[in-house]
Structure formats: C-alpha cells, structure tokens
Simulated scan of single mutants.
Amino acid sequence: MATRLLARRIWSISVKDFRRLPVASLSSSSYSSSLSPSPRPQHFLSCSRSLPLISCRGVSFNVQDHDDFTERVINSELPVVIDFHAQWCGPCKILGPRLEKAIAKQKGRVAMAKVDIDEHTDLAIEYGVSAVPTVIAMRGGDVIDHFVGIKDEDQLDSFVKKLIGQ
C-alpha cells in the first residue's frame, strides 16, 4: 500500500513537471526526429506517450492533486465541468463518455476535469460529494450548478449550455 502511494506521488509530480517544460527540453533522439523545425504549441505535447493521463483532444483532464485542481479548475479562464467518479462505479462508466461528448460539442468553450474520489478524498469532501457520479459546473471559481446520478445526452447538453450561457 505504501509503495503504491509513493509511486502515485512520484507519477503526479513528474506529470506536473513535464507539463511545465518547454518543447525543446523534451528532445531525445527518437522524439526530436519526429518534431518539425517550427515550434509546436504546448498542448500538442499532451498527445505523446509520456503523458497518458492528459486527453489528446484537450477537452478533459485528470486532476493530479489539490494544487493541480486549484490551478486548472478554480483559476481556469474557461468554465469547467468537474466529474467526481470512481473506478468501481458502474453509472460513472456510463456517464463519463456521455459527458465528454457533450463537452466536445462545445469546441473548446468549456473544459472537463475528472476527479477520482478514491484518490482525492479531500476534494470530494470539500465539494460535498456523498455519492458518485456527481458533476459540478464551475465558472470563475464559483459553483454554478451540479447534479448527482446519470443523465441522458439531451440533459447533459442543456447542463453544459447553461454553464456557458447559451
């Protein structure tokens, strides 16, 4: 158990460190040969094999720790939908892809943070999550709306549209 926690801590630190590195500093012989001469935007790095927890579409991301949550959710310029879920939760496995689809329809006007309640119990307690799946809509650090349980695609679309003000 302690080894697993230590490995998880090391992994979360290394992901945050890689996210802050400029593109040129990640060059290795095999990686640099695939880079074009012109600099790439930072978000393209998320599609590399070294960062599997970050979505290549830029639509959703897994929260690594409380500081990451503060940086990428609370201080986000975009509205953020937060999906509190658990690996063992059946409805969460159904809701997750539906929610990602609703977010993707907005084409970058809203982001989605995924918070595993087993890994981030402190965040679940802080936001009053007592059942999963719980979804919270946040804009400018303020909670706008939330729901608990599973929803169909139309309900999710209207939930997201309400967040972005449509």
Rank of each mutant, 00 (worst) to 15 (best):
R49C: 11
W11A: 09
I150D: 09
W11E: 14
K101Q: 13
F69H: 03
S25E: 14
D145C: 06
E100C: 12
A137K: 03
A7L: 15
D116C: 03
E153T: 10
P91G: 00
E100A: 12
E153W: 14
K93T: 00
C56I: 07
D118F: 13
R8L: 07
A111N: 05
C56K: 12
L6I: 06
K101S: 11
L5Y: 06
S14R: 14
Q166L: 13
A102S: 15
S60W: 01
I13D: 10
G128T: 06
S50E: 12
I103N: 11
P97L: 03
N62K: 02
S76V: 00
S33N: 08
E100K: 14
S46R: 11
K162Y: 01
V63W: 02
G108K: 11
R8F: 03
G128E: 06
P79T: 08
G149H: 11
I82M: 08
Q64K: 04
A102E: 11
E153G: 04
G128K: 06
K93M: 11
V148C: 07
M138Y: 04
V73K: 08
I82W: 03
E119A: 07
R98V: 04
R4Q: 04
S130H: 03
K107V: 09
K161C: 05
R72I: 14
K161G: 01
I10T: 04
V23M: 03
T121R: 06
M138G: 05
G108C: 12
S158V: 11
H66C: 04
D118A: 07
L78P: 01
A113I: 09
L163M: 06
R57S: 15
Y31M: 13
A131H: 12
Q155Y: 00
R40C: 08
K162L: 15
P22Y: 10
D142G: 05
S28R: 07
L123K: 08
C89Q: 09
K161I: 00
V81H: 02
P41V: 15
D157R: 04
P97K: 04
A104M: 13
S48P: 03
A7C: 12
E126L: 14
R72V: 13
S50K: 04
V115D: 10
D152N: 15
E153C: 04
G141K: 06
V143I: 12
P79A: 05
I94C: 01
K107E: 08
P39I: 10
G149T: 14
T3C: 06
R109E: 15
I125S: 14
A2P: 00
D67G: 13
Y127C: 10
Q166T: 08
T134P: 13
V115E: 07
S130D: 02
R40N: 11
R109Q: 15
E119G: 01
S32W: 00
V135W: 05
G58I: 11
